[in-house]
Amino acid sequence: MKKTERYLALDVLRGMTIALMITVNNPGSWKYIYAPLRHSSWHGCTPTDLVFPFFLFVVGVSMFFSFSKYGNTLNKESFKRLGRRTLLIFAIGLFLNSFPQWDRDYSTLRIMGVLQRIALAYGFGSLIVLSVPRKYIPLLGFSILLLYWGILGWFGGEDPYSLNGNVTIPFDAAILGEQHLYRGFGIPFDPEGLLSTIPAVVTVLLGYLTGVFIKTTEKVKIPGQLALYGLIVAIAGRLWGLVFPINKPLWTGSYVLYTAGLAAMAFALLIFIIDIKGYKKWTSFFVVFGMNPLFIYALSGLWARTLGMIIKIELADGTVMRGSTWLYENIFVPLAGNMNGSLLYALTHVFFFWVIGYFLYKKRVFIKV
């Protein structure tokens, strides 16, 4: 079995997405967040809306290199690997959703989530790239996006791309149960639901095709050509967005193309800086995150839930405050005020988990999921 090839620019991009995931998921207060660190309210795309698709794009690129040792074909060994990873990542996501397990109403447990979407997009994406001839993957990916567009438009309500009128709600409710859907939008609607995971698979496929491209293209030509391809795909996404709005919660086809194009351009820039120009000293901070990405992300989620749901601080007046709220209001707000204190709280979390990642990195401990 061949040894998996590592690509420094890919590790850096992966690490950047994990650092940004921790940043946007852990503000000191959800009331005080700078605009670029907020998701768009519905249609549109903020810098924060790029983080998740960038990670799935990286998953796709990584798949090409990781499956190279299996000949990039579906066989007993590659199927065992993709099956084990899919189930394990999904299970970790479900564990986080149910934490703390001893104080959980399982009748309203959310089934889906970020890690669950990563698991399913990876699993189905892997089956496609390992079983479908490579030349047909672009056509298949675009067909999936067109099919999803048709499903939303045909089966949705009067405004099929609205929060209340989109068809993902009855679809996910029928399969998962309405009580198991996310309610952060004020109604049972899951932005990482089952139906909207279908186009997320295409984000992974575009990443995989990028892996193929950088492996089969002369090194010095990669940044320029990849940046051009990314620009074309991003423009196509923007143009499609005129009739099929760019929307992260629905993971629309225009959103897939737009974000994947930007991810390709960012990857091209990193390849140019790191591999062509040789500027590598600055990369170590992000490589630490990139070498244990899912472990660090899951650990950050577990810690956030511990601070918010388990650790309680009893005040002098007898009231009880969440540990996360106490830290923000008593340490970070006095230091930097509401808005900057909220950001500082998030960045402190990034540094905290970098320290953990650095310890693992120095010990050469790489936790495979």
Rank of each mutant, 00 (worst) to 15 (best):
I137P: 05
I137A: 11
P138D: 09
L139F: 12
L139W: 11
L140P: 00
L140T: 00
L140R: 06
G141Y: 10
G141A: 12
G141D: 12
G141K: 06
F142K: 00
S143G: 15
L145M: 06
L145Q: 01
L145Y: 05
L146I: 13
L146G: 03
L146A: 14
L147R: 03
L147S: 13
L147K: 00
Y148I: 02
Y148P: 00
W149V: 01
W149Q: 06
W149S: 06
G150M: 07
G150F: 14
G150W: 12
I151T: 13
I151E: 08
L152F: 08
G153R: 14
G153A: 14
G153S: 15
W154C: 13
W154L: 15
F155N: 10
G156W: 09
G156S: 07
G156Y: 08
G156N: 08
G157H: 04
G157A: 02
E158D: 11
E158T: 12
E158L: 12
D159M: 09
D159T: 10
D159F: 09
D159G: 02
P160T: 01
Y161S: 06
Y161L: 14
Y161M: 14
S162A: 02
S162H: 02
L163D: 07
L163H: 10
N164A: 15
N164G: 15
G165H: 09
G165Y: 10
N166G: 07
N166K: 06
V167A: 15
V167N: 14
V167S: 13
T168R: 13
T168A: 15
I169S: 04
I169Y: 01
I169A: 04
I169Q: 00
I169D: 00
P170W: 02
F171E: 10
F171L: 15
D172C: 03
D172I: 01
D172S: 03
D172L: 00
A173M: 00
A174F: 13
A174P: 01
A174R: 09
I175R: 04
I175E: 05
L176P: 01
L176W: 00
G177A: 06
Q179D: 10
Q179T: 07
H180I: 04
H180V: 03
H180A: 04
H180R: 10
L181F: 01
L181M: 06
R183S: 11
R183Q: 14
R183W: 08
F185H: 13
G186D: 06
G186R: 08
G186T: 06
I187E: 07
F189Q: 11
D190K: 03
D190V: 02
D190S: 02
P191L: 07
P191D: 11
P191S: 10
E192K: 01
G193S: 05
L194M: 10
L194V: 06
L194D: 00
L194P: 02
L195C: 05
